[in-house]
Write a protein that binds this DNA or RNA. Structure first.
Length: 188
DNA sequence: AAATGCGCCAACCGCGTGCGC
DNA sequence: AGCGCACGCGGTTGGCGCATT
């Protein structure tokens, strides 16, 4: 409840003040990047004030995470990435941050946009294809669990050490629930 | 050439959660 | 235990550019 009030106030402050909104300029990007380089990407509210950027903290955070971060991968999604997104979405639904966690250099926002723009239709189409059955997906998961060396066709290069379906960075997600999910789904 | 429609993507918004005091 | 704050997430919006009429 208290949080709700704070959030409403926050929103009111943002909408009523003369804070910059909309697209970021190259100058703003430079200032933000320089400030973060010096002080690190945290305390966004005070960062926004101290850096001299006439932006709210949220806006700064989003700009950094989705655009300025040095490890961001720009450009088109590869076929492998598309395939991975399709499969992960089938398993996880709109859990964009989780999906993004499996695609190094891609942000949740980027994946969400890409899904809405390109893959949603594709996914609907694939749902109708018997070849893309959940049975195959279960096999894929078993395969991943059994091969502990991470040697998978969806590997993203030599520096990709994580296992394909390892969600350990987001808590204690095992794979059992995924299997359960798929089994339930197959049972009409 | 101008008007209109549409798709894409950056950015915004509201809400929930976690943490420190 | 309750409060304030910072942060993260997912849905939505707005604007730009391209295609079509």
């Amino acid at each position: 409840m208290a949080n709700k009030v704070i959030n409403i106030l926050d929103t009111n402050i943002r909408s009523s003040s003369s804070l910059n909104r909309g697209a970021w300029t190259a100058d703003e990007d430079r200032i933000l990047a320089q400030y973060i380089d010096k002080h690190g990407p945290r305390r966004w509210k005070s960062l926004a004030i101290r850096s001299g950027l006439n932006r709210c903290g949220k806006s700064c955070r989003l700009r950094w995470l989705n655009y300025l971060r040095p490890d961001i991968k720009r450009g088109n999604f590869s076929d492998a990435e598309q395939d991975l997104i399709l499969r992960l979405h089938r398993l996880l639904g709109n859990r964009w941050s989780l999906i993004a966690g499996r695609l190094p250099g891609r942000t949740d926002n980027e994946i969400k946009n890409y899904w809405n723009a390109h893959l949603r239709k594709k996914a609907k189409l694939m749902e109708k294809l018997p070849a893309f059955s959940t049975a195959i997906q279960v096999e894929m998961i078993k395969e991943t669990e059994e091969s502990g060396d991470g040697d998978h066709e969806m590997s993203y290069g030599d520096d990709e050490e994580d296992e394909f379906f390892d969600f350990s960075t987001k808590g204690t997600y095992g794979l059992d629930w995924v299997k359960t999910f798929l089994e339930l789904e197959e049972d009409p």
